[in-house]
Amino acid sequence: MRDSLRAKAVAICDAKIAKKGEDVGLSFYAFFANRNDEPELLMEAATWWIQTHQLDHFEKAVKVRNLVVSGA
């Protein structure tokens, strides 16, 4: 995952956790606007989420943040 996407994912996870608590879930779509204006980046996130880590559609933001921060 490229550094810019990694930073964006961590920031979004942190914001969701701060707003809704540590049990909040999210999908990789949370990292993007409602329109597909960055298809390559969206596919990169989808590949990381689905193929690399085999995550469910919704996962705890804390889990996702930890994976991203660890560089996994």
Results as ranks from 00 to 15, higher is better:
residue 1 M to L: 10
residue 1 M to G: 13
residue 2 R to Q: 15
residue 2 R to T: 15
residue 2 R to M: 13
residue 3 D to M: 13
residue 3 D to A: 15
residue 3 D to S: 13
residue 4 S to G: 08
residue 6 R to K: 15
residue 6 R to D: 13
residue 7 A to P: 03
residue 7 A to V: 11
residue 8 K to W: 04
residue 8 K to I: 13
residue 9 A to G: 02
residue 10 V to K: 00
residue 10 V to P: 00
residue 10 V to H: 01
residue 11 A to W: 09
residue 11 A to R: 14
residue 12 I to F: 01
residue 13 C to A: 05
residue 13 C to K: 01
residue 13 C to M: 03
residue 14 D to W: 05
residue 15 A to V: 10
residue 15 A to I: 02
residue 16 K to A: 14
residue 17 I to F: 06
residue 18 A to L: 07
residue 18 A to P: 00
residue 18 A to M: 05
residue 18 A to W: 00
residue 19 K to C: 11
residue 19 K to G: 07
residue 20 K to G: 09
residue 21 G to F: 05
residue 21 G to R: 01
residue 21 G to K: 01
residue 21 G to C: 02
residue 22 E to K: 14
residue 22 E to P: 11
residue 22 E to S: 14
residue 23 D to V: 03
residue 23 D to G: 11
residue 24 V to P: 00
residue 24 V to K: 02
residue 25 G to M: 09
residue 25 G to H: 06
residue 27 S to M: 06
residue 28 F to L: 12
residue 28 F to W: 10
residue 29 Y to M: 10
residue 30 A to D: 08
residue 30 A to V: 09
residue 30 A to T: 08
residue 30 A to L: 10
residue 31 F to P: 00
residue 31 F to M: 09
residue 32 F to K: 00
residue 32 F to G: 03
residue 32 F to L: 13
residue 33 A to I: 05
residue 33 A to E: 04
residue 34 N to C: 12
residue 34 N to W: 05
residue 35 R to P: 03
residue 35 R to A: 12
residue 35 R to T: 15
residue 36 N to G: 00
residue 36 N to H: 02
residue 36 N to Y: 01
residue 36 N to Q: 07
residue 39 P to M: 05
residue 39 P to E: 06
residue 39 P to Y: 05
residue 40 E to L: 07
residue 41 L to P: 02
residue 41 L to F: 07
residue 42 L to A: 08
residue 42 L to Y: 06
residue 42 L to R: 04
residue 43 M to W: 12
residue 43 M to P: 07
residue 43 M to E: 15
residue 43 M to D: 15
residue 44 E to V: 06
residue 44 E to Q: 11
residue 45 A to L: 05
residue 46 A to G: 10
residue 46 A to H: 07
residue 46 A to Q: 12
residue 46 A to W: 11
residue 46 A to E: 14
residue 47 T to F: 11
residue 47 T to I: 04
residue 48 W to M: 12
residue 48 W to R: 06
residue 48 W to T: 07
residue 49 W to L: 06
residue 49 W to E: 06
residue 50 I to K: 12
residue 51 Q to W: 15
residue 51 Q to D: 14
residue 51 Q to K: 14
residue 51 Q to M: 13
residue 52 T to N: 13
residue 52 T to Y: 06
residue 52 T to M: 07
residue 54 Q to H: 15
residue 55 L to K: 01
residue 55 L to G: 07
residue 56 D to Y: 09
residue 56 D to M: 13
residue 57 H to P: 10
residue 58 F to T: 05
residue 58 F to G: 04
residue 58 F to C: 07
residue 58 F to R: 03
residue 59 E to F: 03
residue 59 E to M: 10
residue 59 E to Q: 09
residue 59 E to T: 10
residue 59 E to C: 14
residue 60 K to D: 03
residue 61 A to C: 12
residue 61 A to P: 01
residue 61 A to R: 00
residue 61 A to Q: 00
residue 62 V to N: 00
residue 63 K to W: 09
residue 64 V to F: 04
residue 64 V to A: 08
residue 66 N to T: 15
residue 66 N to M: 14
residue 67 L to S: 01
residue 67 L to P: 03
residue 68 V to D: 05
residue 69 V to H: 05
residue 69 V to K: 10
residue 70 S to D: 15
residue 71 G to L: 11
residue 72 A to P: 02
residue 72 A to W: 04
residue 72 A to F: 06
